[in-house]
């Protein structure tokens, strides 16, 4: 029974207001969004902050859903932390090793750009990619970086020959 208390303590220490672990679907996305919205409403969060957090949550959750045909993606994690100064939206999911380099360079590119650079990249992607392009060529990440106004933090931890665990953290300053 000790793990209950340990988990509870970990959540408190990391200011986590919501943790979901398991399979990701559109229905679950909607439930998670509704819970987080209710939580922000109940503390009277600024609407501009609420909208940005909602925005980042959607892109983060739908990213996982979109690639969810992969069996390994049934074990993903999504968390929201609420600190005094900011919200922290984190996700973690296994991805195939062959996608690691591409994803890494995309995130590096995004982090190297300023506000204007992100805006032009966004416009370029939206103009030139078809919707059937499953990854959306990283449009979701660009949007997350724009809404955050800060770099996206990420990490890839090798799991085995086939998979790595991809962690992503986005912060939204509270207005």
């Amino acid at each position: 029974m000790k793990f209950i208390f340990d988990l509870h303590k970990t959540m408190l220490e990391n200011n986590l207001i919501l943790v979901y672990e398991g399979e990701f679907t559109q229905e679950i996305t909607k439930s998670v969004l509704a819970m987080a919205e209710r939580n922000m409403d109940s503390i009277g969060e600024e609407s501009s902050t609420k909208r940005k957090v909602f925005n980042v949550m959607v892109e983060c959750l739908q990213n996982i859903v979109k690639h969810g045909e992969d069996e390994a993606n049934k074990q993903a994690i999504f968390m929201i932390g609420k600190e005094n100064e900011q919200y922290v939206i984190t996700s973690g999911n296994p991805i195939r090793n062959e996608f690691v380099e591409g994803l890494k360079s995309k995130l590096e590119e995004i982090n190297s750009l300023d506000k204007e650079g992100l805006k032009s990249l966004y416009k370029e992607i939206i103009k030139n990619t078809s919707i059937s392009d499953k990854g959306g060529a990283g449009l979701g990440f660009v949007d997350m970086a724009r809404k955050s106004g800060q770099e996206l933090a990420y990490d890839f931890k090798p799991l085995d020959d086939a998979y790595s665990f991809f962690s992503l953290k986005t912060c939204i300053r509270r207005a």
């Binding site: 925005n55 959607v58 892109e59 739908q62 919707i131 979701g140």
Partner: peptide, 12 residues
């Protein structure tokens, strides 16, 4: 009120 990035392509 809100649209995601996948919708933004379709709005375009």
């Amino acid at each position: 009120e809100y649209f995601n990035t996948a919708s933004s392509k379709l709005i375009l």
